[in-house]
Protein backbone atom coordinates (compact mmCIF):
# COMPACT_ATOMS: atom_id res chain seq x y z
CA UNK A 1 0.00 0.00 0.00
CA UNK A 2 1.25 3.44 -0.92
CA UNK A 3 0.89 6.59 1.11
CA UNK A 4 -1.97 8.86 0.10
CA UNK A 5 -3.36 12.16 1.29
CA UNK A 6 -6.75 12.02 2.96
CA UNK A 7 -9.54 14.55 3.20
CA UNK A 8 -12.84 14.17 4.98
CA UNK A 9 -15.44 16.20 3.09
CA UNK A 10 -18.43 17.70 4.86
CA UNK A 11 -20.41 18.41 1.70
CA UNK A 12 -20.69 17.11 -1.80
CA UNK A 13 -19.24 20.39 -3.09
CA UNK A 14 -16.16 20.05 -0.91
CA UNK A 15 -15.80 16.41 -1.88
CA UNK A 16 -15.97 17.09 -5.59
CA UNK A 17 -13.57 20.04 -5.30
CA UNK A 18 -11.07 18.02 -3.32
CA UNK A 19 -11.37 15.08 -5.70
CA UNK A 20 -10.77 17.39 -8.69
CA UNK A 21 -7.42 18.58 -7.36
CA UNK A 22 -5.50 15.65 -8.80
CA UNK A 23 -5.97 12.98 -11.37
CA UNK A 24 -5.37 10.05 -9.03
CA UNK A 25 -8.09 10.79 -6.48
CA UNK A 26 -10.59 8.28 -5.16
CA UNK A 27 -13.72 8.63 -3.09
CA UNK A 28 -13.96 6.35 -0.13
CA UNK A 29 -17.04 5.34 1.81
CA UNK A 30 -17.04 1.96 3.58
CA UNK A 31 -13.61 1.19 2.21
CA UNK A 32 -14.28 -2.53 1.91
CA UNK A 33 -13.33 -2.51 -1.76
CA UNK A 34 -10.93 0.41 -1.88
CA UNK A 35 -8.73 -0.47 1.09
CA UNK A 36 -8.61 -4.11 0.09
CA UNK A 37 -7.40 -3.23 -3.40
CA UNK A 38 -5.09 -0.47 -2.16
CA UNK A 39 -3.34 -2.96 0.10
CA UNK A 40 -2.83 -5.20 -2.91
CA UNK A 41 -1.56 -2.20 -4.90
CA UNK A 42 -4.30 -2.78 -7.45
CA UNK A 43 -5.76 0.66 -6.74
CA UNK A 44 -3.16 3.28 -5.96
CA UNK A 45 -4.97 6.50 -5.16
CA UNK A 46 -2.75 9.47 -4.40
CA UNK A 47 -5.59 11.33 -2.73
CA UNK A 48 -8.57 9.86 -0.91
CA UNK A 49 -11.75 11.82 -0.29
CA UNK A 50 -13.96 10.43 2.45
CA UNK A 51 -17.62 11.03 1.64
CA UNK A 52 -19.21 9.59 4.77
CA UNK A 53 -19.72 12.98 6.42
CA UNK A 54 -21.38 14.54 3.36
CA UNK A 55 -24.87 13.48 4.48
CA UNK A 56 -26.80 11.31 2.01
CA UNK A 57 -27.51 8.75 4.66
CA UNK A 58 -31.31 8.58 4.43
CA UNK A 59 -33.79 6.32 2.71
CA UNK A 60 -36.86 8.28 1.62
CA UNK A 61 -39.96 7.41 -0.33
CA UNK A 62 -40.66 10.25 -2.76
CA UNK A 63 -44.14 11.56 -3.48
CA UNK A 64 -44.21 9.72 -6.79
CA UNK A 65 -43.58 6.45 -4.96
CA UNK A 66 -39.93 6.12 -5.92
CA UNK A 67 -37.33 5.30 -3.29
CA UNK A 68 -34.36 7.59 -2.88
CA UNK A 69 -31.38 5.97 -1.17
CA UNK A 70 -28.49 8.12 0.00
CA UNK A 71 -25.07 6.93 -1.10
CA UNK A 72 -23.87 6.58 2.49
CA UNK A 73 -26.68 4.28 3.63
CA UNK A 74 -24.99 1.06 4.64
CA UNK A 75 -25.93 -2.23 3.05
CA UNK A 76 -27.14 -3.43 6.45
CA UNK A 77 -29.36 -0.42 7.10
CA UNK A 78 -30.79 -0.59 3.62
CA UNK A 79 -31.54 -4.30 3.87
CA UNK A 80 -33.45 -3.84 7.13
CA UNK A 81 -35.21 -0.62 6.23
CA UNK A 82 -38.94 -1.22 6.70
CA UNK A 83 -39.91 0.08 3.26
CA UNK A 84 -37.24 -2.01 1.59
CA UNK A 85 -38.21 -5.12 3.51
CA UNK A 86 -41.83 -4.67 2.65
CA UNK A 87 -41.92 -3.21 -0.84
CA UNK A 88 -38.55 -4.19 -2.27
CA UNK A 89 -38.08 -7.71 -0.91
CA UNK A 90 -35.81 -8.55 -3.80
CA UNK A 91 -33.40 -5.80 -2.76
CA UNK A 92 -33.40 -6.74 0.90
CA UNK A 93 -32.80 -10.40 0.00
CA UNK A 94 -30.00 -9.49 -2.39
CA UNK A 95 -28.22 -7.29 0.13
CA UNK A 96 -28.42 -9.90 2.86
CA UNK A 97 -27.04 -12.57 0.56
CA UNK A 98 -23.92 -10.53 -0.08
CA UNK A 99 -20.56 -10.64 1.69
CA UNK A 100 -20.73 -11.01 5.48
CA UNK A 101 -22.45 -9.13 8.28
CA UNK A 102 -19.33 -7.18 9.17
CA UNK A 103 -18.68 -6.15 5.56
CA UNK A 104 -22.32 -5.15 5.06
CA UNK A 105 -22.14 -3.00 8.17
CA UNK A 106 -19.40 -0.95 6.52
CA UNK A 107 -20.35 -1.19 2.84
CA UNK A 108 -22.44 1.61 1.40
CA UNK A 109 -24.88 2.01 -1.46
CA UNK A 110 -22.56 4.06 -3.65
CA UNK A 111 -19.58 1.87 -2.79
CA UNK A 112 -21.51 -1.24 -3.67
CA UNK A 113 -22.54 0.20 -7.04
CA UNK A 114 -18.86 0.98 -7.64
CA UNK A 115 -17.33 -2.25 -6.31
CA UNK A 116 -14.65 -3.76 -8.47
CA UNK A 117 -14.14 -7.12 -10.11
CA UNK A 118 -13.21 -10.14 -8.03
CA UNK A 119 -10.99 -11.72 -10.71
CA UNK A 120 -7.83 -13.25 -9.21
CA UNK A 121 -5.69 -11.86 -12.02
CA UNK A 122 -7.09 -8.37 -11.51
CA UNK A 123 -6.04 -8.69 -7.87
CA UNK A 124 -2.53 -9.97 -8.68
CA UNK A 125 -0.36 -7.13 -9.93
CA UNK A 126 2.10 -9.51 -11.54
CA UNK A 127 -0.51 -10.99 -13.91
CA UNK A 128 -1.56 -9.34 -17.18
CA UNK A 129 -5.05 -7.84 -16.87
CA UNK A 130 -6.69 -5.41 -19.27
CA UNK A 131 -8.89 -4.01 -16.55
CA UNK A 132 -5.94 -3.09 -14.34
CA UNK A 133 -3.38 -2.37 -17.09
CA UNK A 134 -5.16 -1.58 -20.34
CA UNK A 135 -3.63 -3.50 -23.22
CA UNK A 136 -1.68 -5.97 -21.08
CA UNK A 137 -3.94 -8.89 -21.95
CA UNK A 138 -6.52 -10.99 -20.12
CA UNK A 139 -5.05 -13.75 -17.99
CA UNK A 140 -8.43 -15.26 -17.24
CA UNK A 141 -8.95 -16.29 -20.85
CA UNK A 142 -7.20 -19.65 -21.09
CA UNK A 143 -6.43 -19.44 -17.39
CA UNK A 144 -8.47 -20.25 -14.34
CA UNK A 145 -11.94 -18.84 -14.88
CA UNK A 146 -14.69 -20.57 -12.95
CA UNK A 147 -16.55 -18.96 -10.09
CA UNK A 148 -16.55 -15.22 -10.65
CA UNK A 149 -16.56 -15.23 -14.43
CA UNK A 150 -19.36 -14.34 -16.79
CA UNK A 151 -21.04 -16.03 -19.71
CA UNK A 152 -22.96 -12.97 -20.93
CA UNK A 153 -21.50 -9.69 -22.14
CA UNK A 154 -17.94 -10.95 -22.22
CA UNK A 155 -15.41 -9.85 -24.80
CA UNK A 156 -12.04 -11.16 -25.86
CA UNK A 157 -10.57 -8.53 -23.58
CA UNK A 158 -12.31 -9.34 -20.32
CA UNK A 159 -14.62 -12.05 -19.03
CA UNK A 160 -15.12 -11.25 -15.36
CA UNK A 161 -18.64 -11.07 -13.93
CA UNK A 162 -19.95 -8.02 -12.13
CA UNK A 163 -19.76 -9.09 -8.49
CA UNK A 164 -22.63 -7.19 -6.88
CA UNK A 165 -25.84 -8.73 -5.60
CA UNK A 166 -27.43 -5.41 -4.68
CA UNK A 167 -27.01 -4.12 -8.21
CA UNK A 168 -28.79 -7.12 -9.67
CA UNK A 169 -31.85 -6.36 -7.59
CA UNK A 170 -31.59 -2.69 -8.55
CA UNK A 171 -31.32 -3.62 -12.22
CA UNK A 172 -34.57 -5.55 -11.91
CA UNK A 173 -36.32 -2.74 -10.08
CA UNK A 174 -34.95 -0.03 -12.37
CA UNK A 175 -34.10 3.53 -11.47
CA UNK A 176 -31.39 6.11 -11.75
CA UNK A 177 -28.05 6.83 -10.18
CA UNK A 178 -28.00 10.47 -9.03
CA UNK A 179 -24.58 12.03 -9.35
CA UNK A 180 -23.03 15.41 -8.78
CA UNK A 181 -19.81 16.72 -10.24
CA UNK A 182 -17.93 19.83 -11.32
CA UNK A 183 -20.68 20.50 -13.89
CA UNK A 184 -23.57 20.01 -11.50
CA UNK A 185 -26.08 17.24 -10.99
CA UNK A 186 -27.34 14.63 -13.39
CA UNK A 187 -29.11 11.30 -13.38
CA UNK A 188 -27.85 8.16 -15.07
CA UNK A 189 -30.27 5.35 -15.87
CA UNK A 190 -29.29 2.43 -13.64
CA UNK A 191 -29.09 0.09 -16.62
CA UNK A 192 -26.68 2.44 -18.39
CA UNK A 193 -24.48 3.00 -15.37
CA UNK A 194 -22.30 -0.08 -15.68
CA UNK A 195 -20.45 -0.57 -18.95
CA UNK A 196 -19.78 -3.69 -20.95
CA UNK A 197 -16.08 -4.53 -21.16
CA UNK A 198 -15.81 -4.43 -24.96
CA UNK A 199 -12.26 -3.45 -25.75
CA UNK A 200 -12.08 -1.06 -22.78
CA UNK A 201 -12.60 -3.22 -19.69
CA UNK A 202 -10.88 -0.60 -17.55
CA UNK A 203 -13.88 1.68 -18.12
CA UNK A 204 -16.52 0.29 -15.79
CA UNK A 205 -19.11 2.99 -15.25
CA UNK A 206 -20.67 6.11 -16.68
CA UNK A 207 -19.33 8.60 -14.14
CA UNK A 208 -17.46 11.56 -15.60
CA UNK A 209 -14.26 12.79 -14.02
CA UNK A 210 -14.71 13.73 -10.35
CA UNK A 211 -18.41 12.94 -10.27
CA UNK A 212 -19.73 11.56 -7.01
CA UNK A 213 -22.76 9.40 -6.48
CA UNK A 214 -25.21 11.06 -4.12
CA UNK A 215 -28.17 8.68 -4.36
CA UNK A 216 -29.68 5.77 -6.11
CA UNK A 217 -33.35 6.40 -6.82
CA UNK A 218 -35.38 3.28 -7.49
CA UNK A 219 -38.59 3.08 -9.46
CA UNK A 220 -41.82 2.76 -7.53
CA UNK A 221 -42.66 -0.84 -6.70
CA UNK A 222 -44.62 -2.72 -9.36
CA UNK A 223 -48.20 -2.84 -8.13
CA UNK A 224 -49.33 -6.21 -6.91
CA UNK A 225 -45.99 -7.81 -7.67
CA UNK A 226 -44.01 -10.31 -5.67
CA UNK A 227 -40.28 -10.29 -5.77
CA UNK A 228 -37.42 -12.58 -4.83
CA UNK A 229 -33.65 -12.84 -5.04
CA UNK A 230 -32.15 -16.29 -5.45
CA UNK A 231 -28.40 -16.66 -5.14
CA UNK A 232 -26.75 -19.92 -6.09
CA UNK A 233 -23.24 -20.70 -4.95
CA UNK A 234 -21.07 -23.55 -3.72
CA UNK A 235 -21.29 -22.72 -0.06
CA UNK A 236 -24.24 -21.36 1.85
CA UNK A 237 -22.80 -17.96 2.72
CA UNK A 238 -19.94 -15.56 2.07
CA UNK A 239 -19.38 -16.30 -1.57
CA UNK A 240 -20.07 -14.28 -4.68
CA UNK A 241 -22.89 -15.65 -6.81
CA UNK A 242 -22.16 -18.41 -9.26
CA UNK A 243 -25.52 -17.42 -10.67
CA UNK A 244 -28.35 -15.41 -9.23
CA UNK A 245 -31.72 -14.08 -10.25
CA UNK A 246 -33.67 -11.04 -9.16
CA UNK A 247 -37.28 -11.53 -10.10
CA UNK A 248 -40.31 -9.28 -9.86
CA UNK A 249 -43.57 -10.63 -11.20
CA UNK A 250 -47.18 -9.49 -11.11
CA UNK A 251 -49.86 -11.88 -12.23
CA UNK A 252 -53.53 -11.71 -13.13
CA UNK A 253 -54.73 -15.08 -12.02
CA UNK A 254 -52.37 -17.51 -13.72
CA UNK A 255 -51.27 -15.05 -16.34
CA UNK A 256 -48.11 -12.99 -16.08
CA UNK A 257 -48.97 -9.29 -16.24
CA UNK A 258 -45.55 -7.85 -15.56
CA UNK A 259 -42.13 -9.47 -15.20
CA UNK A 260 -38.69 -8.11 -14.42
CA UNK A 261 -35.72 -10.41 -14.51
CA UNK A 262 -32.12 -9.55 -13.75
CA UNK A 263 -29.20 -11.88 -13.30
CA UNK A 264 -26.02 -11.88 -11.28
CA UNK A 265 -22.81 -13.87 -11.42
CA UNK A 266 -23.30 -14.55 -15.12
CA UNK A 267 -23.03 -11.12 -16.74
CA UNK A 268 -20.21 -8.64 -17.06
CA UNK A 269 -22.65 -6.08 -15.66
CA UNK A 270 -25.83 -6.46 -13.61
CA UNK A 271 -27.79 -8.22 -16.33
CA UNK A 272 -31.34 -7.34 -17.19
CA UNK A 273 -33.01 -10.00 -19.30
CA UNK A 274 -35.49 -7.87 -21.25
CA UNK A 275 -36.26 -10.38 -24.00
CA UNK A 276 -36.93 -13.10 -21.45
CA UNK A 277 -39.28 -10.77 -19.58
CA UNK A 278 -41.17 -9.92 -22.76
CA UNK A 279 -41.64 -13.59 -23.59
CA UNK A 280 -43.57 -14.04 -20.38
CA UNK A 281 -46.01 -11.14 -20.56
CA UNK A 282 -49.51 -12.40 -21.09
CA UNK A 283 -48.37 -16.00 -20.80
CA UNK A 284 -49.40 -18.59 -18.26
CA UNK A 285 -47.13 -18.90 -15.25
CA UNK A 286 -45.99 -22.42 -16.04
CA UNK A 287 -42.67 -24.16 -15.67
CA UNK A 288 -42.59 -24.62 -19.40
CA UNK A 289 -42.91 -20.92 -20.10
CA UNK A 290 -40.38 -20.14 -17.40
CA UNK A 291 -37.90 -22.54 -18.97
CA UNK A 292 -38.43 -20.91 -22.35
CA UNK A 293 -37.78 -17.50 -20.85
CA UNK A 294 -34.61 -18.82 -19.24
CA UNK A 295 -33.45 -20.19 -22.59
CA UNK A 296 -34.01 -16.78 -24.14
CA UNK A 297 -32.04 -15.11 -21.36
CA UNK A 298 -29.01 -17.28 -22.07
CA UNK A 299 -29.35 -17.47 -25.86
CA UNK A 300 -26.15 -15.49 -26.38
CA UNK A 301 -24.16 -17.03 -23.54
CA UNK A 302 -20.51 -17.86 -24.15
CA UNK A 303 -18.69 -19.70 -21.37
CA UNK A 304 -15.03 -19.69 -20.42
CA UNK A 305 -13.09 -22.97 -20.30
CA UNK A 306 -14.26 -23.55 -16.73
CA UNK A 307 -17.76 -22.17 -16.33
CA UNK A 308 -20.06 -23.78 -18.89
CA UNK A 309 -22.16 -25.02 -15.98
CA UNK A 310 -23.23 -21.44 -15.33
CA UNK A 311 -25.53 -21.55 -18.33
CA UNK A 312 -27.80 -24.30 -16.98
CA UNK A 313 -27.31 -22.96 -13.46
CA UNK A 314 -28.36 -19.45 -14.47
CA UNK A 315 -31.43 -20.88 -16.16
CA UNK A 316 -32.27 -22.77 -13.00
CA UNK A 317 -31.98 -19.55 -11.00
CA UNK A 318 -34.51 -17.91 -13.29
CA UNK A 319 -36.96 -20.82 -13.33
CA UNK A 320 -36.90 -21.38 -9.57
CA UNK A 321 -37.09 -17.62 -8.94
CA UNK A 322 -40.15 -17.36 -11.16
CA UNK A 323 -41.70 -20.39 -9.51
CA UNK A 324 -41.11 -18.90 -6.09
CA UNK A 325 -42.87 -15.62 -6.82
CA UNK A 326 -45.77 -17.26 -8.64
CA UNK A 327 -46.31 -20.12 -6.21
Amino acid sequence: MRDFSYMQADSVGAAVASHAKGNDSAYISGGTTLLDLAKLEVMRPGHVVDVRKTGYDQVEQLDDGRLRIGTNVTNTDLAYHPIVKEQYTVLSDALLSGASTSIRNKATTGGNVMQRARCAYFRDTSAPCNKREPGSGCSAIGGHARSVFAVLGTSEHCVVAHPSDMCVAMAAIGGVVNVEGPNGKRDIDFLDFHLLPGDTPHLEHALEADEMITHVTLNAPVKGAKSHYLKLRDRASYQFALASSAIIVATDGDTVRDARIAMGGVGTKPWRAAAAEKSLIGKAATEDNFAKAADIAFADARPTDDNAFKIPLGKQAIVRGLQTVTA
Binding site: R118, A120, Y121, D124, S126, A127, S139, G142, G143, H144, S147, V148, D234, R235, A236, S237, Y238, Q239, F240
Partner: peptide
Protein backbone atom coordinates in the same frame (compact mmCIF):
# COMPACT_ATOMS: atom_id res chain seq x y z
CA UNK B 1 -15.64 -33.00 0.55
CA UNK B 2 -17.29 -29.98 -1.01
CA UNK B 3 -15.12 -26.89 -1.03
CA UNK B 4 -11.44 -26.96 -0.24
CA UNK B 5 -8.96 -26.76 -3.09
CA UNK B 6 -5.99 -24.52 -3.69
CA UNK B 7 -6.28 -23.60 -7.33
CA UNK B 8 -3.30 -22.78 -9.49
CA UNK B 9 -3.05 -21.17 -12.86
CA UNK B 10 -2.09 -24.12 -15.04
CA UNK B 11 0.26 -21.97 -17.09
CA UNK B 12 2.14 -20.02 -14.43
CA UNK B 13 1.73 -22.35 -11.46
CA UNK B 14 0.73 -19.42 -9.26
CA UNK B 15 -2.16 -19.91 -6.81
CA UNK B 16 -5.26 -17.99 -7.80
CA UNK B 17 -7.54 -18.34 -4.79
CA UNK B 18 -5.06 -17.41 -2.08
CA UNK B 19 -7.38 -15.56 0.28
CA UNK B 20 -10.26 -16.22 2.67
CA UNK B 21 -12.89 -15.08 0.20
CA UNK B 22 -12.06 -17.45 -2.64
CA UNK B 23 -10.47 -20.40 -0.80
CA UNK B 24 -13.72 -21.91 0.35
CA UNK B 25 -14.10 -23.53 3.74
CA UNK B 26 -17.47 -24.17 5.36
CA UNK B 27 -19.18 -21.17 6.90
CA UNK B 28 -21.47 -21.44 9.90
CA UNK B 29 -24.34 -21.65 7.46
CA UNK B 30 -22.79 -24.75 5.91
Amino acid sequence: ALFEQTEYDHRSGMPVNNNYAEYLVPTHAD
